[in-house]
Design a protein around this nucleic acid. Structure first.
Length: 345
DNA sequence: CCCCATGATTGCAC
DNA sequence: GTGCAATCATGGGG
């Protein structure tokens, strides 16, 4: 209801200049007391409003102008206000709810996790590196890395360009609509709330487009990722030296073959593999050793002997009794230092 | 080509 | 999160 003075103001401001067009079309007999003439007037004005969008810009501008200056306009405006008040109430309430879209959040999270929508450039490659590391890709696969990274960066770029485009288009469109509404608000009552709602509708439409973009970006990342994963599955055996280092550790800690995080890191560094590969290796080794101790007997003895020799050569101490990691040469598995709570079961 | 070894993945339990 | 167990899929020797 508070639009009226503002609108009238605008109207007055523009209305002073001469306005060709409308005065010619609308008979200036509105002051007449007879009802027929008035009805005729209103009919004409309504007609003008109805056809206003069909007219050329200049013509429409002129007519609009004239319409705004017409002295029947305030009355008509009031009528429109009244009608509106009734309809708006019924519209309202139906449009209030806006739950945070779960799917959109999932997409956002994924894009963030993949480094596509992350803070900046580094995010992408960092995420790729992290993914690669967690997947356990060795240093020799760095070619695959950079390929993956490059593709991810490409996706990221496309995503951002598109997003920016959409945002720009959304803003342009919103501004356009708002201007239009503001312009129209001189002719018909439009509350700021309504404009707000319209903007909301536009934003929702655009965000649904954005969601599609996010969705397809996610798909692209998934495809890229699955290809990368497939590539990873093409395993290579560790080199001999790495296997020896791992075995050495395993058999010399047979009573408790669970390297700590630090130990894993060190082993990883020594073998030039990743920590998760070390974990995999130990996981596989433990289970396979346990399943068939007999088969590993020879290996165990060999590494036991080796560590014994090493120990002997390193320390002239000679006291073996207090070495907890001394492998149990014969039985291998349940070592004398067996710890019930922390061993292969 | 078959078969076994082996690194990686998955599903489950804690 | 870690570890176990089962399983997948490839590598590589015969």
């Amino acid at each position: 209801m508070d639009e009226q003075p503002r609108l009238m103001h605008a109207h007055a401001a523009v209305g002073m200049s001469g306005h060709p067009g409308l005065s010619q079309h609308i008979p200036d007999n509105t002051g007449a007391t007879d009802g027929d003439g008035r009805k005729q007037d209103i009919g004409d004005i309504l007609q003008q409003i109805m056809t206003i969008t069909d007219q050329s810009l200049d013509e429409a501008q002129a007519r609009k102008h004239a319409l705004n200056c017409h002295r029947m306009k305030p009355a008509l405006f009031n009528v429109l206000c009244e009608i509106k008040e009734k309809t708006v109430l019924s519209i309202r309430g139906a449009q209030e709810e806006e739950p945070p879209d779960a799917q959109l959040m999932r997409l956002d999270n994924m894009l963030l996790a993949e480094g596509v929508s992350g803070p900046e450039k580094g995010g992408g490659s960092a995420a790729a590196a992290a993914a690669a590391a967690s997947a356990g890709v060795g240093a020799d696969n760095s070619a695959e890395h950079s390929d993956y990274r490059a593709k991810l960066t490409q996706i990221r770029q496309i995503y951002h360009t598109e997003l920016e485009k959409y945002e720009q288009a959304c803003n342009e469109f919103t501004t356009h609509v708002m201007n239009l509404l503001r312009e129209q608000s001189r002719t018909r009552p439009i509350s700021p709330k309504e404009i707000e709602r319209m903007v909301g509708i536009i934003h929702r439409k655009f965000s649904s487009i954005q969601m599609q973009l996010k969705q397809s970006t996610c798909e692209a990342v998934m495809i890229l990722r699955s290809r990368f994963l497939d590539a990873r599955r093409k395993r290579r055996n560790f080199n001999k030296q790495a296997t020896e280092i791992l075995n050495e550790y395993f058999y010399s800690h047979l009573s408790n073959p669970y390297p700590s995080e630090e130990a894993k890191e060190e082993l990883a560094k020594k073998c030039s593999i990743t920590v998760s590969q070390v974990s995999n290796w130990f996981g596989n080794k433990r289970i396979r050793y346990k399943k068939n101790i007999g088969k590993f007997q020879e290996e165990a003895n060999m590494y036991a002997a080796r560590t014994a020799v090493n120990a002997a050569s390193v320390s002239a101490h000679g006291s073996q009794a207090n070495s907890p990691s001394t492998p149990n040469s014969a039985g291998g598995y349940p070592s004398p230092c067996y710890q019930p709570d922390r061993r292969i079961q």
